[in-house]
Design a protein around this nucleic acid. Structure first.
Length: 593
RNA sequence: GCUCUCAUAGUUUAAUGGAUAGAACAUCGGUUUGCGGUACCGACGAUCCAAGUUCGAUUCUUGGUGAGAGCACCA
């Protein structure tokens, strides 16, 4: 439709150029936007405002000239100049109502568009270290990433959802060592648990699994365990060197083979827990990418070689550095440490290379706000590798606070008091959790109100939207009791009867759905969709209250209204699905406690 | 100290550089016995401060103020 309007204006411009009103070399970009208020018609363009300066004429005069030279269109009922010089286009009612037919015909395919041009992209999100269960802090990234991926897919991107499993670094050694120490404890040998070890109870659970499988096979004396280990923080030493000493002893005491057994049990247990939690949260991945693969293959070496061949590496203090400052980063970054170990950043560079080697045309990274330092670093890495930095995009999500009884829920891994994602889902349900996490802009701090999420009232936006859906289902159900029928043919043929304000409003909202999707995709903002659904639900509730829909004797009007309701239902269901929430047929559920 | 993100009604917040800054909650006042009142309608009420760019700024630039975060041969 926008295209059609552009053509109309294009023609008017040509005519004005031909009769000398406008200079011949004028070829402005014609931008149409959907109007915010219906008094301004359906679409508006600011063309006259942008032409004011080059033409040295008042915007209103230009707008008037343009409208006077417009040719008639079947779809346009009225064109007017308004405000400072906007040209507002009013579509014919007939044209507006076509969307209802379209929605009913296309169902969940309505809104599909080619905005993304089938670009093959990888969306990486959550990627929490497999050293413990996911907590509510990861929830926002998970909900955001999953919803955004769905929207991008809808908008014509070829999306792969990926989770990067950091199964290679020192943190994993700390995990394995923590598990082993708990295991030693379980065998009856007392240990002083390190300050920097993983404190959670889940570590003991994993140790139990190890013991069940291997008995006391891995047991060693405390003399052996602590031999040559520097003092821990609580004994006045340094917790880092202390745990490094413990790791090193653990490795040599168990030997590579047995150490790996403990390591694998810990990794598998935690990773499968993470997978379970995410799947329970309706968050599904196409790929779980292991960091180890980068090392066991030659990707890390090749990535470093590329940097080296491009002369972006140098040696200092026995370490190998990447000249990140050359590409705008604050600091140069170490890729190989003095002790010969490759840094985590080296893996990141390799992973980036790997993504593009796998044929992705774009890499989208979704990070928490605490990772903002990564942006410059990753862009620098891309430049160093010869990858266009514009092909990688890093989006940050701000933190979420949990609010309970009006108070912020205090959390911290140290205090040991943190709410897991799984607990949250059990507490408020998947639908509310998914929706609440994305209903605010991702670059805005989010207050997650637990009480509101649990409440079953109109104050709860998820509930409110779902209720609109259930209400429509109920209307259709109720028809049978009234011995009335829904006849879609008659309804679609009678759409011209939808002529009151509420019906116009609803129709208008429905037709903006595809643009909501592309706007959502373009700005990486699922909350735009969330807000839209609320608005649509509100508009429907209002309509429902004012007008009868199903219980009508007039067959034509009844079916026309039912078609409208059905279209609303389709959109709500589609939208909720994309945000990872369900669209229930009824709000009364027997199995609810 | 340096860097990044954010700042809008009492509260939580929305707004591709555009028209009268849009909602929800709270507060106050209403709803013809109804296809589910788990709903609807109305009122009150806001762009942190100061310059600049622009025909036009909540939006862009600069400087303040305030909040959060990041600044390792850690992951």
């Amino acid at each position: 439709m926008i295209k059609h309007l552009q053509e109309l204006l294009e023609k008017a411009l040509e005519d004005l150029k031909r009769n000398g009103e406008f200079p011949k070399d004028l070829s402005p970009e014609i931008i149409f936007e959907r109007t915010k208020s219906k008094e301004h018609g359906d679409f508006a363009t600011n063309l006259a405002l942008t032409l004011a300066k080059p033409l040295k004429k008042s915007p209103r005069d230009i707008a008037q000239l343009l409208t006077d030279n417009l040719i008639e269109s079947l779809h346009v009922s009225k064109v007017e100049v308004a405000g400072p010089g906007f040209i507002n286009f009013f579509l014919t009612e007939n044209c507006r109502r076509q969307v209802i037919k379209q929605i009913i015909k296309q169902g969940d395919e309505f809104g599909d568009n080619a905005y993304g041009k089938n670009k093959k992209i990888t969306v990486e999100f959550v990627s929490a270290n497999p050293t413990g269960p996911l907590h509510v802090g990861h929830g926002r990234g998970a909900a955001y990433g999953a919803s955004l991926s769905n929207i991008l897919e809808k908008c014509g991107y070829n999306v792969q959802r990926e989770y990067y499993v950091n199964d290679n670094g020192r943190q994993m050694d700390i995990l394995a060592t923590s598990v082993w120490l708990r295991y030693v404890e379980l065998c009856g040998q007392p240990v002083v648990f390190p300050d920097n070890g993983y404190q959670g109870d889940y570590i003991v659970d994993i140790a139990r699994i190890v013991r069940k499988k291997y008995g006391d096979k891995f047991l060693h004396t405390s003399h052996e365990i602590y031999e040559g280990v520097p003092a821990d923080e609580k004994s006045g030493g340094d917790k880092e060197t202390h745990i490094d000493g413990l790791i090193s002893n653990t490795k040599s005491l168990l030997g590579k083979k047995d150490y790996n057994k403990v390591f694998q049990i810990a990794l598998n247990d935690i990773l499968s827990g993470i997978k379970q939690d995410l799947s329970k949260f309706n968050v599904n991945y196409d790929s779980w990418f292991s960091e180890k693969l980068l090392h066991s293959g030659d990707t890390v070496d090749r990535a470093l070689k590329i940097l080296k061949d491009n002369n972006y590496l140098y040696e200092k203090d026995g370490a190998i550095w990447f000249m990140a400052t050359h590409f705008g980063d604050d600091l140069d970054r170490v890729v190989i440490r003095e002790n010969g170990q490759k840094t985590y950043f080296a893996s990141d560079v390799a992973y980036l290379l790997n993504k593009f080697e796998r044929g992705f045309e774009g890499a989208l990274y979704l990070f928490g706000a605490d990772h903002h330092g990564y942006i410059a670093r990753m862009k620098a890495a891309a430049k160093g590798l010869g990858i266009n930095p514009d092909d990688i995009e890093i989006v940050l999500t701000q933190f979420a606070n949990l609010i309970e009884h009006g108070e912020k829920v205090q959390m911290g891994t140290r205090s040991g008091k943190f709410v897991t994602l799984s607990q949250l889902i059990d507490d408020v349900g998947v639908d509310a959790a998914r929706f609440f996490y994305v209903m605010r802009s991702h670059d805005q701090h989010l207050d997650f109100d637990l009480d509101l999420a649990k409440s079953q009232s109109n104050e709860n936006p998820v509930f409110y939207i779902q209720y609109a859906h259930a209400r429509i289902c109920r209307v259709f159900e109720k028809l049978e009791q009234e011995a009335l029928q829904y006849n879609q043919e008659i309804g679609l043929a009678s759409l011209n009867l939808l002529d009151n304000d509420s019906e116009h409003d609803l129709t208008r909202l429905l037709s903006s759905y595809p643009e909501i999707l592309t706007a959502s995709a373009r700005t990486r903002s699922p909350h735009v969709l969330a807000n839209y659904l609320r608005e649509l639900a509100q508009s429907f509730h209002s309509y429902y209250n004012e007008h009868k829909i199903g219980k009508l004797d007039d067959e034509s009007l009844r079916n026309a209204r039912l078609c409208l309701a059905k279209a609303v239902k389709v959109i709500i269901a589609n939208g909720l699905k994309m945000l990872g929430a369900s669209a229930p047929e009824s709000m009364f559920s027997e199995d609810k406690d």
